[in-house]
Amino acid sequence: MFDIINTKSVKVILITFLVYGGLVAAHEGEFWPLSIYPMFSQGANPWTRAMVKDVRQLDDETIWQVSYFRNTPGTQVAMQDHGIDQIDFSNFVSKTTHWDEQRVQGLRTMMGPELLASKDLMIYKVNGIIHDDGSIDIEAVPFILLTENESVKNPNLPQSAFFRD
């Protein structure tokens, strides 16, 4: 009896394996919970993350400056204190290619009305790059300023920074 069951079990595992392979092959390695687990597979790639600082009461000249991420002006806004998932936020900022009105509104929705009412939020794109000698540069670029009533894109950045192909 167990031989028949075992044969069937092996077949089920192999069929599942084939379906698994087919689904991940057709969906760039991911069809949750099936995955080829490609995380951290590419070493030394430049990366972009995002963070937020409260820049209320700082002048225009200061807030649009590019600097090392630890030296940016203003007060750090901790995402977890406001129920915002850092990974979602960071990916929303770094992976959006067309910052049309809807996307900017999506970012405002993510921040929530309470945060927007109490702070002037500078959304930074933080870029990391490694040089041949092993030194790492981490540069924070002011991207969009969100205040209670308006959203201002960095005037010093080219249009292509907000609308990439």
């Binding site: 070493g43 993350r49 750090q76 901790a78 204190d81 990391g128 490694i130 790492i136 981490i138």
Partner: peptide
């Protein structure tokens, strides 16, 4: 290559700073 770890640790440091404020 250990330099890759340096890059990932740096990347994660930005995420933690943004998430927790420190």
């Amino acid at each position: 290559d250990g330099k890759h770890l340096w890059m990932w640790m740096s990347e994660k440091s930005v995420d933690i700073l943004s998430r927790t404020g420190e």
